[in-house]
């Protein structure tokens, strides 16, 4: 298969687009893990709830889906706070298996509730329609839909905003301090309970944004979050557990590798090849590309 310049450019763009979604999802996940040392397996289901709420809000309020996305992120963020308060905070400090089972229970509850609401109205799939679905940028060799540019731009704007929040604000500093040493942070007067809630809120909101952007470019179902969450886990292991920089680099790398592998090896390799990459990275650098807290 000869790879011409337009195909190469398209493949890289598809990789960056899907990588940006992984990046958002994985950042939320790594933030929760970094601060609370909790692995939230239900991140994929929060993602799909985000997509579904954006779909509904845009339709009911008759607003641009990108505006509806803000409402969806807020609602899912609040749901994240509730999950943390009434779920994870109650079992904090008990056996790790309790957290795992709580996560699995959340997957089933969130997925089945969504399916109950979703299926009678939309059958198997729904897609978020934006006013820009047939608007294109002419890049010479290819035309690029506005939605892809908005997706990448929005994802990066959020990452930069998160970076600013974490490294330039007092609350962000509290969050990083809690991540580095929870006990010391408590002794320094940081309200770690509030940090936990905030962290879950941001993580869930990022999942909602990831889901909404996914829903703009792909049809989605209540079940589509599971495989996306598994990939997000692979991304944070690849990038380094608890490292936001690692989630960003890992997400993009994962997206591009997946896209290139699908082009050359076929769709059957789409999921497998990225895990091959993960194994290779872990063999060479067991701590991931970036160390925890990077």
């Amino acid at each position: 298969m000869v790879l011409d310049s337009s195909s190469l450019l398209q493949i890289l763009i598809w990789g960056l687009v899907v990588g940006s979604i992984y990046m958002l999802l994985a950042t939320g996940l790594t933030l929760i893990f970094g601060v609370m040392k909790i692995v939230n397996f239900a991140q994929g289901e929060l993602m799909m709830w985000g997509a579904f709420l954006t779909f509904l809000l845009a339709r009911w309020l008759e607003v641009n889906p990108y505006a509806a996305l803000a409402g969806s992120a807020l609602l899912v963020g609040l749901a994240g706070v509730a999950i943390e308060r009434f779920g994870f905070s109650r079992i904090r400090g008990t056996a790790k298996i309790n957290e795992i089972f709580l996560s699995i229970a959340l997957i089933l509850v969130l997925q089945n509730t969504l399916a109950r609401v979703f299926v009678p109205y939309f059958r198997e799939y729904a897609q978020i329609r934006t006013p820009y679905a047939t608007e294109f940028f002419d890049l010479g060799v290819i035309n690029l839909r506005y939605d892809f540019v908005i997706l990448i731009g929005l994802a990066w704007a959020l990452m930069l905003g998160l970076g600013y929040f974490l490294y330039r604000t007092a609350v962000g500093r509290d969050l990083r301090a809690t991540s580095q040493n929870r006990s010391a942070a408590m002794l320094m007067g940081i309200d770690v309970r509030r940090v936990d809630m905030l962290c879950f809120c941001i993580g869930a909101a990022l999942a909602a944004v990831a889901g909404s952007l996914y829903g703009v470019i792909n049809p989605f179902s209540p079940y589509a979050g599971t495989i996306a969450a598994i990939k997000a886990f692979a991304v944070i292991i690849l990038g380094g557990l608890g490292s936001v920089t690692g989630a960003v680099v890992g997400g993009l790398l994962y997206g591009v590798v997946e896209s290139v592998a699908t082009f050359f090896l076929g769709g059957s390799w789409r999921d497998a090849i990225a895990f091959v990459l993960l194994i290779v990275v872990l063999m060479l650098r067991p701590e991931g590309i970036f160390k925890e807290g990077g």
Binding site: V2, S7, Q10, I11, F220, V260, G266, S268
Partner: peptide
């Protein structure tokens, strides 16, 4: 003959190959 997994909804990479 390009394949995709059941439930997959992103076919852009395969379609890019097909277009070529």
């Amino acid at each position: 003959t390009e394949r995709f997994k059941v439930g997959e909804t992103d076919y852009r990479a395969q379609l890019t190959k097909i277009k070529a």
